[in-house]
Structure formats: structure tokens, C-alpha cells
Amino acid sequence: MEMNKSEKKIGIVTMTSGENYGNKLQNYAVQEVIKKLGFLPETLINTTVKGFDLPEAELSLIQKLKPLYILMALKIRINKILLIKNEGDQIIKSIIWKVRNREKIKEVKLLKKEVFSNFFKSKIRSSDFTISSNNIPFEKIEEFEYFFCGSDQIWNPFYPQNSMIDFICFAPEAKRIAYAPSFGVDHIPEYKKVFYKEWLSEISSLSVREEQGAKIIRELTGREAEVLVDPTLMLSRDEWLSIASKPEFKIEGEYIFTYFLGNKTNEYDDYIKSLADLHSYKIVNLLEIREFDYYSAGPQEFIYLINNASLVCTDSFHGAVFSIILKSNFIVFDRKEGKHSMGSRQQTLLKKFNLEDRFFEAVSTSGKYNQTNFEGSEDIILREQNITWAFLKKALKF
């Protein structure tokens, strides 16, 4: 007997570990999109730790021995160990603070992990099995009608867990659908190009989240990939607010919400503090572990905090996305990871919504930090949603 569509499963391949707000919320959004298409979503628990056993051939040994590279690598390592988020933090003070607060740091990190785990368990329908580049349960794979890989930076070649799993190579080609995945960077290292070319060529329905990603695919394979909006934009403001939660900590008065995945420069930090002083705003730094209460907030509190902020300052793609969805004033700051620019995602997003004046460089010149023009944003979202629905229905052979 033929199954109803609602009984047919679509597997979601995305990053399932870690405590990243955008990652968890886009996972939830993809799930809800699949439900609206009449299928049963199931996120595969991907346990791949190291996808490539090849050396980082992009940098030769000679390059790695250059003083500039050594200093950059050392700075990144020290910042990570000492939990330094701001350029102005002094190393000695950071060491002393970390030693004095080591038990509290451990407690807060465990609490945050628990909060994210609870969100995943309560809001995401996941598989009762795991998959990795070294362990593919083919008998389970046969239960799925299709697989979506995406969204988020699952195709970022500089992530250690990046592997063939992220391209659904374990399933028949006809079942592989790329739903707005991101490369996160503007180029693929030479030693991975041969793999990416093969894996991308075998995906039956191909889309990406950024124009730069479409360019990478075109150069590698000659194929044209549809550029779709992030899945979080497929849900309405009301749908997101229906799962938002007010944090347990109290915020007196209006506040600036900061969400920086990279380090804040002195320039950025001084600018944000000057705005807070000017308007007597409090600053809620979500990813500053030194601010223990804020640091342990979960994905549902993240939505609430953006929705109620007087201003959002972020270098995060999803920080900007949720500011647009919730119509909160925002500024986007440049972000780099090591030597790799992460700006292509924000550029595509702000260009699409005619909001390029929200980049820090433009705002600091115009002075219009609290004048985000959302006129037309709802029409743009509706248009992009229709493009996405058309792509997915074609991919699923509606």
C-alpha cells in the first residue's frame, strides 16, 4: 500500500553539535518547511569529527613558518584559551580572571550546553541513529524519500567536520536536494576542489544561500545553482515569536543587544559603548562569557532578545536575518575567521533587502544607527518565499 505524503520522511543533513543560535534555529526552520510540504522531517545526527585526513595543503610548510602566520595563529589560540572576545582585553587580566572564575566558567558552559540540548530535544525531530563519514547505516537510509542538505555553513571547507556526508553522498543521486547551504567563505582550497566538484555534480537539485556560493559551483562544475533565502525567512514573525522565551535574567530599561561570533575590535567596542552612553542604554553581550547570565541564554531567548532590543549590533548572518524578520534596528559589522572573510553572506542578504546602509562603515558615516528602513521587506520576503517554494516543489516532483 502506498504511503501518504505525511508518512514519507525527508532527512535533514546539517550540523547537529555545538551551541550556535543560528544553526539551531535554521534547523528548526528547515524542519517546519518540510512539514508545510506535507512530509515528515527527521534531522540526522551527524557525528563526523574529522572529514578529511589530508593535510592543509593550502598553506605550505614555508608559509606556516612565516612570523606573520605564527603570530596570527598564536593570537587566535590565546584568545580561545583565555576567552578573550574584545581586542582591548589585556592578557594578564584575562589570565587572572579565568583562574579566579574557573568553576563558574565550567558551570555556565555546562548550563549553556544543557539549554541547547533541551531545545534540540524538544523542538527538533531527530533520528534514532547516528551517521558519519566512517559509519553509514544504509538500512536506515532506505527509509527516507529524500534528503535535504542545508542550511547553514555545512559546505565550509575550513570546518574540520566537513565531509561527503554534507553532500548526501550516502544516498541515491535522485534523493539529494541541496536546500540553501552555505560555503561561508569565498573560495575552496585547492586540495578540496576535486572532491567538491564530484560531490556537487551528483546532487540532483542544487541551491545555495549566497551569490558567492553559486559562483563557486559554476566555476567548479559549470552548473547553475538557485540562490535561495535562508530557511529562517520562510517562517513569519508571528511563528518565531510563538516559540520565543523571555530570559530569566532581568534587563532594566532599553538595551543594545550584541551578538559577535568573531572578536570585537576596539573601534567596534568604543562605538557601541558611545551609543549606549548617549541613550543610557544597557548593553547585553550575548557571547561574552564574563557576563554569566547572558551567556547561558538559549535559542528561544535569542529570539526574544532581538525582538525587544533598541538596537542589534552583530557580525553574524543570523543576527542580521532575525533583525530583519523581527524588524529590529541593527548594524552589521565585518567578521573574519583567521584570514578568511565571512562577509559574502551578509552582502547577499543586505543587498537582497536593500539594506546595505546597515553595514557599520555606512552607519558610522551617516549616523543613522537607529533608522533601519524596513519598507518593502515583507514584499521581498514573500517574493523570496515563493521562489523557494517553487524550487522545493520542483525538486520533490510535485
Rank of each mutant, 00 (worst) to 15 (best):
Q347N: 13
I203T: 09
K282V: 12
L233A: 12
K193T: 09
R383E: 14
T14D: 06
W97I: 09
P137S: 08
M3D: 05
I306P: 04
S205A: 14
W97C: 02
C313N: 02
E42M: 08
W199Y: 14
I131V: 15
E248H: 02
D270H: 11
E252R: 10
T221F: 04
R176I: 05
L25Q: 11
G213F: 01
P189Q: 08
S328Q: 12
I62Q: 13
A244P: 03
L111W: 00
I136Y: 00
D238H: 04
E291T: 12
L396G: 12
L287V: 05
D270R: 10
E107H: 10
E248C: 03
K9Y: 05
N373C: 13
E375T: 14
Y69D: 03
Y69N: 06
K192P: 00
E198L: 14
W155T: 11
L350F: 11
L65S: 13
A180R: 07
W155D: 06
P55H: 07
L200K: 06
A309Y: 01
S377Y: 00
W199T: 13
I303M: 11
F359E: 07
P172C: 05
L287Y: 01
K339P: 04
N101V: 11
Q31K: 01
S341P: 09
R358P: 09
W240G: 03
K123C: 09
I124N: 06
V208M: 03
E226G: 00
K121C: 04
W199D: 08
Y69I: 13
F52D: 10
D152L: 05
F138V: 10
K64S: 04
K250W: 00
M164Q: 14
Y304W: 15
Y28R: 10
N308C: 05
E252I: 10
K394V: 02
F183C: 10
F333L: 07
L44R: 01
W199E: 06
S94H: 02
R223L: 14
I243K: 05
A297Q: 09
P247H: 02
K351P: 01
I289E: 10
E226K: 15
L241I: 11
H340S: 07
M15A: 11
I165M: 09
E114Y: 07
F359T: 15
I289L: 08
G338Q: 05
A171H: 09
E107K: 14
W199H: 06
A178V: 01
E87M: 04
I177D: 04
E56C: 04
I95S: 03
P137I: 03
Y255H: 08
R209I: 08
L278V: 06
T43E: 13
K75P: 03
E173C: 02
